[in-house]
Design a binder for these strands. Structure first.
Lengths: 189, 189
DNA sequence: GAGATTCGCCTAACCTGATTAGGCAGGACG
DNA sequence: CGTCCTGCCTAATCAGGTTAGGCGAATCTC
Protein backbone atom coordinates (compact mmCIF):
# COMPACT_ATOMS: atom_id res chain seq x y z
CA UNK A 1 0.00 0.00 0.00
CA UNK A 2 1.39 3.36 -1.00
CA UNK A 3 1.94 5.42 2.11
CA UNK A 4 1.21 9.00 1.31
CA UNK A 5 2.51 10.40 4.57
CA UNK A 6 -0.62 11.95 5.96
CA UNK A 7 -0.29 13.93 9.14
CA UNK A 8 -2.53 16.45 10.80
CA UNK A 9 -0.23 19.18 9.54
CA UNK A 10 -0.16 17.91 5.97
CA UNK A 11 -3.92 17.74 5.91
CA UNK A 12 -4.36 21.23 7.27
CA UNK A 13 -1.88 22.76 4.84
CA UNK A 14 -3.48 20.91 1.94
CA UNK A 15 -6.83 22.04 3.27
CA UNK A 16 -5.68 25.66 3.19
CA UNK A 17 -4.60 25.33 -0.43
CA UNK A 18 -7.77 23.52 -1.36
CA UNK A 19 -9.84 26.23 0.28
CA UNK A 20 -8.14 28.85 -1.86
CA UNK A 21 -8.78 26.81 -4.97
CA UNK A 22 -12.35 25.67 -4.56
CA UNK A 23 -13.58 27.55 -1.49
CA UNK A 24 -13.54 26.83 2.22
CA UNK A 25 -17.09 25.52 2.05
CA UNK A 26 -16.17 22.73 -0.30
CA UNK A 27 -13.02 21.79 1.57
CA UNK A 28 -14.28 18.50 2.97
CA UNK A 29 -12.54 15.38 4.21
CA UNK A 30 -13.74 13.59 1.09
CA UNK A 31 -12.21 16.25 -1.15
CA UNK A 32 -8.87 16.11 0.65
CA UNK A 33 -8.87 12.32 0.48
CA UNK A 34 -9.40 12.58 -3.27
CA UNK A 35 -6.45 14.92 -3.58
CA UNK A 36 -4.19 12.62 -1.62
CA UNK A 37 -5.41 9.58 -3.55
CA UNK A 38 -6.56 8.00 -0.35
CA UNK A 39 -9.80 6.73 1.13
CA UNK A 40 -11.79 9.19 3.20
CA UNK A 41 -11.73 6.94 6.23
CA UNK A 42 -7.95 7.20 6.28
CA UNK A 43 -8.10 10.82 7.35
CA UNK A 44 -9.79 9.98 10.60
CA UNK A 45 -6.57 8.92 12.27
CA UNK A 46 -5.29 12.46 11.80
CA UNK A 47 -8.32 14.67 12.30
CA UNK A 48 -11.21 13.97 14.62
CA UNK A 49 -13.91 14.96 12.16
CA UNK A 50 -14.82 17.46 9.48
CA UNK A 51 -15.43 20.24 11.98
CA UNK A 52 -12.04 19.63 13.52
CA UNK A 53 -10.39 19.86 10.12
CA UNK A 54 -12.01 23.18 9.42
CA UNK A 55 -11.04 24.49 12.82
CA UNK A 56 -7.48 23.45 12.10
CA UNK A 57 -7.45 25.30 8.80
CA UNK A 58 -8.91 28.36 10.50
CA UNK A 59 -6.21 28.36 13.19
CA UNK A 60 -3.53 27.83 10.56
CA UNK A 61 -4.78 30.77 8.54
CA UNK A 62 -5.01 32.97 11.62
CA UNK A 63 -1.39 32.22 12.49
CA UNK A 64 -0.23 32.81 8.96
CA UNK A 65 -2.09 36.09 8.77
CA UNK A 66 -0.71 37.16 12.11
CA UNK A 67 2.82 36.46 10.84
CA UNK A 68 2.26 38.53 7.72
CA UNK A 69 0.70 41.41 9.59
CA UNK A 70 3.47 41.27 12.15
CA UNK A 71 6.08 41.56 9.42
CA UNK A 72 4.22 44.36 7.70
CA UNK A 73 3.87 46.44 10.81
CA UNK A 74 7.41 45.92 12.10
CA UNK A 75 9.37 49.13 12.23
CA UNK A 76 6.45 51.37 11.32
CA UNK A 77 4.28 53.65 13.38
CA UNK A 78 1.37 56.04 13.08
CA UNK A 79 -0.39 56.17 9.75
CA UNK A 80 2.36 54.15 8.18
CA UNK A 81 1.69 51.29 10.55
CA UNK A 82 -2.06 51.64 10.15
CA UNK A 83 -1.78 51.40 6.39
CA UNK A 84 0.61 48.49 6.50
CA UNK A 85 -1.66 46.65 8.91
CA UNK A 86 -4.74 47.25 6.82
CA UNK A 87 -3.08 46.33 3.55
CA UNK A 88 -1.60 43.14 4.93
CA UNK A 89 -5.06 42.16 5.98
CA UNK A 90 -6.67 43.03 2.68
CA UNK A 91 -3.92 41.49 0.57
CA UNK A 92 -4.21 38.24 2.45
CA UNK A 93 -7.91 38.09 1.73
CA UNK A 94 -7.33 38.69 -1.95
CA UNK A 95 -4.45 36.28 -2.32
CA UNK A 96 -6.00 33.58 -0.16
CA UNK A 97 -9.75 33.90 -0.33
CA UNK A 98 -10.36 30.44 1.07
CA UNK A 99 -8.03 30.93 3.98
CA UNK A 100 -9.53 34.31 4.69
CA UNK A 101 -12.97 32.75 4.81
CA UNK A 102 -11.49 30.18 7.14
CA UNK A 103 -10.35 32.90 9.55
CA UNK A 104 -14.00 33.69 10.08
CA UNK A 105 -14.97 30.15 10.88
CA UNK A 106 -16.69 30.26 14.26
CA UNK A 107 -14.29 28.78 16.80
CA UNK A 108 -15.41 27.23 20.02
CA UNK A 109 -13.94 28.64 23.20
CA UNK A 110 -11.01 26.25 23.49
CA UNK A 111 -9.92 26.69 19.88
CA UNK A 112 -10.26 30.44 20.13
CA UNK A 113 -8.15 30.52 23.27
CA UNK A 114 -5.48 28.38 21.65
CA UNK A 115 -5.51 30.41 18.49
CA UNK A 116 -3.86 33.58 17.35
CA UNK A 117 -6.70 35.82 18.46
CA UNK A 118 -4.56 37.36 21.17
CA UNK A 119 -1.75 38.06 18.71
CA UNK A 120 -4.12 39.93 16.43
CA UNK A 121 -5.40 42.06 19.27
CA UNK A 122 -1.84 42.78 20.35
CA UNK A 123 -0.82 43.90 16.89
CA UNK A 124 -3.83 46.11 16.66
CA UNK A 125 -2.78 47.74 19.92
CA UNK A 126 0.74 48.12 18.65
CA UNK A 127 -0.52 50.03 15.62
CA UNK A 128 -2.56 52.28 17.85
CA UNK A 129 0.35 53.00 20.13
CA UNK A 130 1.38 55.85 17.86
CA UNK A 131 -1.96 57.55 18.42
CA UNK A 132 -1.59 57.74 22.18
CA UNK A 133 -5.01 56.47 23.20
CA UNK A 134 -5.66 55.70 26.84
CA UNK A 135 -7.92 52.89 27.97
CA UNK A 136 -10.74 52.24 27.49
CA UNK A 137 -10.53 54.28 24.32
CA UNK A 138 -7.78 52.13 22.93
CA UNK A 139 -9.99 49.07 23.18
CA UNK A 140 -12.80 50.87 21.44
CA UNK A 141 -10.40 51.80 18.67
CA UNK A 142 -9.16 48.22 18.41
CA UNK A 143 -12.72 47.12 17.89
CA UNK A 144 -13.30 49.83 15.33
CA UNK A 145 -10.28 48.79 13.31
CA UNK A 146 -11.21 45.14 13.49
CA UNK A 147 -14.73 45.95 12.36
CA UNK A 148 -13.72 48.14 9.45
CA UNK A 149 -11.11 45.79 8.08
CA UNK A 150 -13.16 42.65 8.55
CA UNK A 151 -16.21 44.31 7.14
CA UNK A 152 -14.55 45.95 4.17
CA UNK A 153 -12.64 42.91 3.10
CA UNK A 154 -15.66 40.67 3.53
CA UNK A 155 -17.91 42.92 1.50
CA UNK A 156 -15.26 43.46 -1.12
CA UNK A 157 -14.58 39.78 -1.62
CA UNK A 158 -18.30 39.07 -1.73
CA UNK A 159 -18.34 41.36 -4.74
CA UNK A 160 -20.14 44.16 -2.93
CA UNK A 161 -17.98 46.91 -4.38
CA UNK A 162 -17.27 45.60 -7.82
CA UNK A 163 -19.12 46.68 -10.92
CA UNK A 164 -19.68 50.12 -9.49
CA UNK A 165 -17.73 53.35 -9.58
CA UNK A 166 -15.61 54.54 -7.94
CA UNK A 167 -12.92 51.92 -7.75
CA UNK A 168 -12.66 49.89 -4.57
CA UNK A 169 -9.02 50.87 -4.22
CA UNK A 170 -10.02 54.51 -4.11
CA UNK A 171 -12.49 53.87 -1.32
CA UNK A 172 -9.93 51.88 0.57
CA UNK A 173 -7.40 54.69 0.44
CA UNK A 174 -9.88 57.31 1.46
CA UNK A 175 -11.17 55.17 4.30
CA UNK A 176 -7.66 54.67 5.63
CA UNK A 177 -7.09 58.42 5.47
CA UNK A 178 -10.33 58.90 7.33
CA UNK A 179 -9.45 56.38 10.00
CA UNK A 180 -6.08 57.99 10.50
CA UNK A 181 -7.71 61.39 10.92
CA UNK A 182 -10.28 59.95 13.28
CA UNK A 183 -7.70 58.23 15.45
CA UNK A 184 -5.67 61.42 15.74
CA UNK A 185 -8.66 63.22 17.18
CA UNK A 186 -10.11 60.30 19.11
CA UNK A 187 -11.22 61.27 22.62
CA UNK A 188 -8.36 60.66 24.99
CA UNK A 189 -10.15 61.28 28.25
CA UNK B 1 -53.32 12.79 3.71
CA UNK B 2 -53.09 15.83 5.89
CA UNK B 3 -52.40 18.83 3.71
CA UNK B 4 -50.17 21.19 5.58
CA UNK B 5 -50.42 24.03 3.12
CA UNK B 6 -46.85 24.37 2.04
CA UNK B 7 -45.97 27.26 -0.20
CA UNK B 8 -42.69 28.88 -1.12
CA UNK B 9 -43.54 31.74 1.21
CA UNK B 10 -44.44 29.51 4.13
CA UNK B 11 -41.22 27.61 3.76
CA UNK B 12 -39.11 30.73 3.63
CA UNK B 13 -40.77 32.28 6.65
CA UNK B 14 -40.45 29.03 8.58
CA UNK B 15 -36.86 28.88 7.39
CA UNK B 16 -36.19 32.33 8.83
CA UNK B 17 -37.58 31.30 12.21
CA UNK B 18 -35.70 28.04 12.14
CA UNK B 19 -32.49 29.86 11.33
CA UNK B 20 -32.93 32.05 14.40
CA UNK B 21 -33.55 29.01 16.55
CA UNK B 22 -30.90 26.57 15.42
CA UNK B 23 -28.70 28.60 13.08
CA UNK B 24 -28.79 29.34 9.37
CA UNK B 25 -26.27 26.56 8.72
CA UNK B 26 -28.57 23.90 10.05
CA UNK B 27 -31.64 25.23 8.30
CA UNK B 28 -31.95 22.45 5.74
CA UNK B 29 -34.84 21.13 3.69
CA UNK B 30 -34.85 18.04 5.90
CA UNK B 31 -35.13 20.15 9.04
CA UNK B 32 -38.01 22.17 7.62
CA UNK B 33 -39.79 19.03 6.51
CA UNK B 34 -39.49 17.71 10.06
CA UNK B 35 -41.02 20.87 11.42
CA UNK B 36 -43.95 20.70 9.03
CA UNK B 37 -44.43 16.99 9.70
CA UNK B 38 -43.89 16.27 6.05
CA UNK B 39 -41.50 14.24 3.91
CA UNK B 40 -38.45 16.07 2.61
CA UNK B 41 -39.33 15.29 -0.96
CA UNK B 42 -42.54 17.26 -0.56
CA UNK B 43 -40.64 20.52 -0.35
CA UNK B 44 -39.31 20.17 -3.84
CA UNK B 45 -42.53 21.34 -5.44
CA UNK B 46 -42.04 24.67 -3.69
CA UNK B 47 -38.30 25.28 -3.70
CA UNK B 48 -35.88 24.21 -6.39
CA UNK B 49 -33.23 22.92 -4.04
CA UNK B 50 -31.45 23.61 -0.76
CA UNK B 51 -29.44 26.48 -2.20
CA UNK B 52 -32.59 28.06 -3.51
CA UNK B 53 -34.20 27.83 -0.10
CA UNK B 54 -31.28 29.56 1.55
CA UNK B 55 -31.26 32.26 -1.08
CA UNK B 56 -34.95 32.79 -0.43
CA UNK B 57 -34.37 33.16 3.29
CA UNK B 58 -31.52 35.59 2.62
CA UNK B 59 -33.69 37.76 0.38
CA UNK B 60 -36.51 37.66 2.90
CA UNK B 61 -34.18 38.78 5.69
CA UNK B 62 -32.69 41.54 3.55
CA UNK B 63 -36.16 42.91 2.83
CA UNK B 64 -37.21 42.69 6.44
CA UNK B 65 -34.04 44.43 7.58
CA UNK B 66 -34.49 47.12 4.96
CA UNK B 67 -38.03 47.75 6.25
CA UNK B 68 -36.81 48.07 9.81
CA UNK B 69 -33.96 50.37 8.92
CA UNK B 70 -36.24 52.43 6.74
CA UNK B 71 -38.65 52.91 9.64
CA UNK B 72 -35.84 53.72 12.04
CA UNK B 73 -34.31 56.36 9.82
CA UNK B 74 -37.56 58.03 8.77
CA UNK B 75 -37.78 61.59 9.98
CA UNK B 76 -34.24 61.75 11.31
CA UNK B 77 -31.09 63.32 10.00
CA UNK B 78 -27.46 63.81 10.84
CA UNK B 79 -26.13 61.94 13.82
CA UNK B 80 -29.64 61.01 14.83
CA UNK B 81 -30.15 59.20 11.55
CA UNK B 82 -26.73 57.62 11.72
CA UNK B 83 -27.40 56.23 15.17
CA UNK B 84 -30.86 54.99 14.26
CA UNK B 85 -29.50 53.30 11.15
CA UNK B 86 -26.68 51.64 13.04
CA UNK B 87 -28.85 50.50 15.92
CA UNK B 88 -31.51 49.09 13.66
CA UNK B 89 -28.82 47.04 12.01
CA UNK B 90 -27.29 45.84 15.25
CA UNK B 91 -30.62 45.14 16.93
CA UNK B 92 -31.70 43.01 14.01
CA UNK B 93 -28.56 40.93 14.28
CA UNK B 94 -29.10 40.38 17.98
CA UNK B 95 -32.79 39.62 17.75
CA UNK B 96 -32.51 37.49 14.66
CA UNK B 97 -29.05 35.96 14.56
CA UNK B 98 -30.01 33.34 12.01
CA UNK B 99 -31.61 35.83 9.69
CA UNK B 100 -28.65 38.14 10.04
CA UNK B 101 -26.32 35.32 9.06
CA UNK B 102 -28.65 34.72 6.13
CA UNK B 103 -28.20 38.30 4.94
CA UNK B 104 -24.56 37.45 4.35
CA UNK B 105 -25.29 34.39 2.29
CA UNK B 106 -23.48 34.87 -1.01
CA UNK B 107 -26.08 35.65 -3.66
CA UNK B 108 -25.57 35.00 -7.31
CA UNK B 109 -25.93 37.93 -9.64
CA UNK B 110 -29.62 37.43 -10.45
CA UNK B 111 -30.66 37.04 -6.83
CA UNK B 112 -28.60 40.04 -5.79
CA UNK B 113 -30.18 42.16 -8.49
CA UNK B 114 -33.65 41.09 -7.45
CA UNK B 115 -32.92 41.64 -3.80
CA UNK B 116 -32.94 44.58 -1.48
CA UNK B 117 -29.31 45.48 -2.02
CA UNK B 118 -30.22 48.67 -3.78
CA UNK B 119 -32.59 49.69 -0.99
CA UNK B 120 -29.81 49.30 1.56
CA UNK B 121 -27.44 51.42 -0.45
CA UNK B 122 -30.15 54.06 -0.88
CA UNK B 123 -30.82 54.22 2.83
CA UNK B 124 -27.16 54.55 3.54
CA UNK B 125 -27.01 57.50 1.19
CA UNK B 126 -30.08 59.01 2.81
CA UNK B 127 -28.34 58.90 6.18
CA UNK B 128 -25.30 60.58 4.71
CA UNK B 129 -27.34 63.33 3.10
CA UNK B 130 -27.12 65.35 6.30
CA UNK B 131 -23.34 65.37 6.06
CA UNK B 132 -23.25 67.00 2.66
CA UNK B 133 -20.74 64.74 0.95
CA UNK B 134 -20.20 65.09 -2.76
CA UNK B 135 -19.38 62.16 -5.01
CA UNK B 136 -17.21 60.16 -5.04
CA UNK B 137 -16.78 60.82 -1.33
CA UNK B 138 -20.31 59.83 -0.55
CA UNK B 139 -19.75 56.42 -2.05
CA UNK B 140 -16.58 55.98 -0.05
CA UNK B 141 -18.52 56.88 3.07
CA UNK B 142 -21.30 54.44 2.18
CA UNK B 143 -18.71 51.72 1.95
CA UNK B 144 -17.17 52.75 5.25
CA UNK B 145 -20.51 52.59 7.03
CA UNK B 146 -21.34 49.25 5.49
CA UNK B 147 -17.96 47.90 6.52
CA UNK B 148 -18.10 49.14 10.09
CA UNK B 149 -21.61 47.94 10.78
CA UNK B 150 -21.22 44.60 9.06
CA UNK B 151 -17.87 44.04 10.68
CA UNK B 152 -18.84 45.11 14.16
CA UNK B 153 -22.04 43.15 14.27
CA UNK B 154 -20.38 40.07 12.82
CA UNK B 155 -17.52 40.17 15.30
CA UNK B 156 -19.85 40.90 18.17
CA UNK B 157 -22.19 38.04 17.41
CA UNK B 158 -19.23 35.72 16.92
CA UNK B 159 -18.41 36.51 20.53
CA UNK B 160 -15.38 38.59 19.66
CA UNK B 161 -16.14 41.31 22.16
CA UNK B 162 -17.69 39.38 24.98
CA UNK B 163 -15.87 38.34 28.12
CA UNK B 164 -13.62 41.36 27.94
CA UNK B 165 -13.85 44.87 29.32
CA UNK B 166 -15.03 47.38 28.39
CA UNK B 167 -18.58 46.56 27.54
CA UNK B 168 -19.46 46.14 23.88
CA UNK B 169 -22.19 48.73 24.21
CA UNK B 170 -19.63 51.28 25.29
CA UNK B 171 -17.49 50.61 22.24
CA UNK B 172 -20.51 50.82 20.01
CA UNK B 173 -21.46 54.23 21.36
CA UNK B 174 -17.96 55.58 21.09
CA UNK B 175 -17.56 54.22 17.58
CA UNK B 176 -20.78 55.91 16.48
CA UNK B 177 -19.56 59.18 18.00
CA UNK B 178 -16.30 58.74 16.15
CA UNK B 179 -18.01 58.01 12.84
CA UNK B 180 -20.20 61.06 13.23
CA UNK B 181 -17.15 63.22 13.89
CA UNK B 182 -15.34 61.69 10.96
CA UNK B 183 -18.23 62.24 8.57
CA UNK B 184 -18.52 65.86 9.60
CA UNK B 185 -14.92 66.49 8.61
CA UNK B 186 -14.82 64.09 5.66
CA UNK B 187 -13.11 65.60 2.63
CA UNK B 188 -15.75 67.23 0.49
CA UNK B 189 -13.68 68.12 -2.54
C1' DG C 1 18.50 -10.39 11.44
C1' DA C 2 13.99 -12.45 13.12
C1' DG C 3 10.12 -11.85 15.67
C1' DA C 4 7.04 -8.40 17.98
C1' DT C 5 4.84 -4.19 17.72
C1' DT C 6 3.24 -0.02 15.93
C1' DC C 7 0.89 2.52 12.74
C1' DG C 8 -0.79 3.97 8.23
C1' DC C 9 -4.05 3.05 5.19
C1' DC C 10 -7.77 -0.13 3.68
C1' DT C 11 -12.56 -2.51 3.39
C1' DA C 12 -17.08 -2.72 4.98
C1' DA C 13 -20.97 -0.78 6.85
C1' DC C 14 -24.17 2.69 8.39
C1' DC C 15 -26.18 7.32 8.96
C1' DT C 16 -27.91 11.82 7.44
C1' DG C 17 -29.05 14.95 3.93
C1' DA C 18 -30.19 16.16 -1.12
C1' DT C 19 -32.59 15.08 -5.04
C1' DT C 20 -35.57 12.82 -8.76
C1' DA C 21 -39.38 9.94 -10.63
C1' DG C 22 -43.58 8.48 -10.38
C1' DG C 23 -48.09 7.44 -7.64
C1' DC C 24 -52.39 8.26 -5.12
C1' DA C 25 -56.04 10.77 -3.04
C1' DG C 26 -59.11 14.49 -2.12
C1' DG C 27 -60.93 18.94 -3.19
C1' DA C 28 -62.40 22.01 -7.26
C1' DC C 29 -65.06 22.35 -11.19
C1' DG C 30 -67.69 21.16 -14.94
C1' DC D 1 -71.10 12.56 -10.49
C1' DG D 2 -67.01 12.12 -13.01
C1' DT D 3 -62.56 14.34 -14.09
C1' DC D 4 -58.66 16.95 -13.24
C1' DC D 5 -55.25 19.24 -10.63
C1' DT D 6 -52.43 19.52 -7.11
C1' DG D 7 -50.29 18.45 -2.77
C1' DC D 8 -48.05 15.26 -0.54
C1' DC D 9 -46.31 10.44 -0.53
C1' DT D 10 -43.21 6.17 -1.53
C1' DA D 11 -39.21 4.51 -3.51
C1' DA D 12 -34.75 4.92 -5.01
C1' DT D 13 -30.20 6.95 -5.78
C1' DC D 14 -26.15 9.60 -4.60
C1' DA D 15 -22.68 12.17 -1.89
C1' DG D 16 -20.56 13.16 2.37
C1' DG D 17 -19.38 11.89 7.31
C1' DT D 18 -18.10 8.52 10.57
C1' DT D 19 -16.95 4.08 13.03
C1' DA D 20 -15.09 -0.67 13.50
C1' DG D 21 -11.98 -3.70 12.49
C1' DG D 22 -8.21 -5.80 9.33
C1' DC D 23 -3.79 -6.21 6.92
C1' DG D 24 0.74 -5.29 5.74
C1' DA D 25 4.89 -2.46 5.89
C1' DA D 26 8.11 0.01 8.77
C1' DT D 27 10.38 0.13 13.04
C1' DC D 28 11.91 -1.58 17.36
C1' DT D 29 14.09 -5.08 20.39
C1' DC D 30 17.34 -8.24 21.48
Amino acid sequence: MARVGLTTGTLIRAGAETADEIGFERTTPTELARRFGVRTASLYSHVRNAHDLKTGIALFALEELADLVSDAVAGRSGKDALTAFANAYRDYARRHPGRFTATQFPLDAEAAAAGAGARHAQMSRAVLRGYGLAEPHQTHAVRLLGSVFTGYVTLESAGGFSHSAPDSQESWTEILNGLDALLRTWPTG
